[in-house]
């Protein structure tokens, strides 16, 4: 045990001595930079450069793999969720009080948007864009049925929905339903909505998902479309999605 401890002490002492030498070495380099040292330093720099040239691409590859892998997982989950999930059957009431289902629109694309007629800004803006995009689609617009589904069935009766959508375009069909029917279609489309009382009045506003859903002639989900793009961009995206199917 004793010799071992001596060894350890000697090793420690040796290490301290080595550290001291290194410190001296550093002091020497810092204090005076002789030509020889400079050459050595340049070599070190070259070596470290070589090390860095490998390190950065390696890191970049790792980063790309991690992000790419994550994105792939995200997209594949998203796609499988879309294929298996978004949309599905619904039963609602149109502006004339007639019952319609998802099957009513088979053979045509459905462009589905959720909102409410009390909504003063985002919903009119979106419906304006949708109406203008349909105009730009020309004859192809006949293959697209835009649906405006209310998330506020308490206030949005069939008559209210009809008058509201008609103000934007006769092509847009306003749909309402019972709370259960609206709840079911909102769940199917993964739509979030929550009411908020407007201060000082009995009015309330509703936060709601603001995505346009393009559904195929078979009723299956095709693509989500942004609502904050221009009518031209929206029309181009719809046309592209239609021709790719």
């Amino acid at each position: 045990m004793r010799p071992a401890r001596d060894d350890a002490a000697r090793d420690t002492g040796g290490a301290i001595a080595q550290l001291g030498e290194r410190l001296n070495g550093i002091q020497e380099v810092v204090g005076s930079i002789p030509i020889g040292s400079t050459t050595a330093s340049l070599k070190d720099v070259e070596m470290s450069r070589g090390w860095r040239t490998w390190l950065l691409p390696t890191l970049a590859i790792i980063v790309v793999l991690v992000i790419g892998g994550g994105a792939w997982l995200y997209i594949s989950q998203d796609v499988s969720a879309q294929i298996g999930g978004i949309g599905g059957p619904f039963t609602l009431i149109d502006g004339s009080g007639q019952t319609v289902t998802d099957r009513t629109f088979r053979g045509r694309f459905m462009l589905v948007y959720f909102g409410y007629t009390f909504c003063p800004d985002v919903c009119p803006t979106t419906l304006t864009t949708v109406a203008a995009a349909l105009d730009r689609l020309g004859p192809q617009a006949d293959q697209v049925q835009p649906l405006f589904i209310t998330v506020d069935p308490a206030r949005d009766t069939p008559k209210v929905m009809h008058e509201y959508t008609a103000a934007f375009s006769p092509r847009i069909l306003g749909l309402t339903g019972s709370e259960q029917q609206i709840g079911a279609v909102a769940r199917g489309y993964r739509v979030y909505f929550a009411s908020h009382a407007a201060a000082g009045t009995s009015d309330y506003t509703v936060d709601h998902s603001s995505i346009l859903y393009l559904m195929g002639p078979d009723g299956r989900f095709v693509a989500p479309l942004r609502t904050d793009q221009s009518a031209g961009a929206l029309a181009a995206e719809i046309r592209k999605d239609m021709t790719e199917r």
């Binding site: 007629t117 003063p120 009119p124 209210v160 509201y164 959508t165 103000a167 009015d203």
Partner: peptide, 10 residues
Amino acid sequence: ATAGAGRSAA
């Protein structure tokens, strides 16, 4: 212009 029942406007 208010659309339909027109209970709100921006």
